[in-house]
């Protein structure tokens, strides 16, 4: 395994988590992750050593997702709980999966550009600068999408007043 593949394998679990945030569907997330990994391997010549590898791979996955979402009917709801439960592997995961499903449903109600900002910062733990780099938007745009997404989520999850 070379440095590129090692770096890719290291980031893949986090890409898959980001894919969960974007797709709100475990099976779609796995599929998207695999396609992003394939695309990254095929496009490896385009990666500039010394630049942010993680941001580059997040961007690949996110752009693939945009293409996918555009090319098919928009889902109007997230997967049903029963369906999600089937994808849960280890025992004891049911509660975590239910919580995740609940949060993915909330995410589902956000506009795409707010959801991806929220997923990159709140779930992936990227800095604002890194998230802006992934999404190829100015820092101010990222911040305002992030704040609006967070405010909307806080209301949905019942924790904050309108003020």
């Amino acid at each position: 395994m070379d440095a590129f593949e090692t770096a890719l394998i290291r980031i893949l679990p986090r890409l898959r988590r980001f894919a969960h945030g974007l797709t709100r569907d475990a099976a779609d997330a796995d599929d998207l992750t695999q396609r992003a990994a394939e695309r990254a391997l095929k496009s490896r010549a385009q990666w500039q050593p010394g630049t942010n590898f993680d941001a580059w791979t997040y961007r690949i996955l996110r752009n693939l997702w945009i293409d996918t979402a555009r090319s098919r009917q928009r889902r109007d709801k997230v997967i049903a709980p029963a369906e999600d439960a089937e994808t849960v592997g280890a025992p004891g995961d049911a509660e975590a999966a239910a919580e995740r499903l609940f949060l993915m449903r909330a995410m589902d109600r956000l506009p795409d550009e707010q959801r991806e900002a929220v997923a990159l910062v709140m779930i992936e733990g990227l800095s604002y600068a890194e998230a802006a780099e992934v999404l190829e938007v100015p820092a101010g745009t990222l911040t305002s999408r992030l704040v609006r997404g967070r405010q909307a989520l806080a209301k949905m999850l019942g924790g904050v007043n309108d003020g």
Partner: peptide, 8 residues
């Protein structure tokens, strides 16, 4: 863990 799809 997630496996690389192919060339790895």
């Amino acid at each position: 863990p997630v496996a690389l799809p192919s060339a790895e």
